[in-house]
């Protein structure tokens, strides 16, 4: 894919405090740059499109294992997964949802 072409992604949105319990997917257009990851896409949405999007990350280099999301149904680390056109990004299913793609990883 070339720089500056745009890609479409679908991201799971769910705001439990508004009484929404099943959630829905929203589609976003993101200008593409070489080497973009799922995490840089989420960051782009937060910074440029909608600041109510919630996601968790820390190290952004594949070490903390905090950025797990499901992409097209499979669990991956958002920070080290290359972004592709048409991806569907949802919360990691094994854990309880907090909001959007943030799940509850707490064990304590």
């Amino acid at each position: 894919m070339k720089n500056k072409e745009s890609v479409k992604v679908r991201v799971f949105r769910c705001t439990p405090e508004n009484g929404e319990d099943t959630g829905h997917y929203e589609e976003y257009n993101i200008p593409y740059e070489a080497g973009m990851t799922v995490l840089t896409a989420l960051d782009y949405i937060y910074e440029h499109i909608d600041r109510s999007l919630s996601f968790y990350y820390s190290c952004r280099i594949g070490k903390c294992l905090g950025c797990f999301v499901d992409v097209d149904g499979k669990p991956v680390l958002a920070c080290t997964t290359l972004l592709k056109d048409g991806m569907t990004i949802g919360p990691h299913k094994k854990h309880k949802l907090i909001k959007d793609v943030v799940v509850d990883f707490r064990e304590n």
């Binding site: 405090e17 600041r51 109510s52 919630s54 909001k99 943030v102």
Partner: peptide
Amino acid sequence: SCSAKGKIYNRE
């Protein structure tokens, strides 16, 4: 100011 007003996991 936050454009998003929700309290749950509000990154902003």
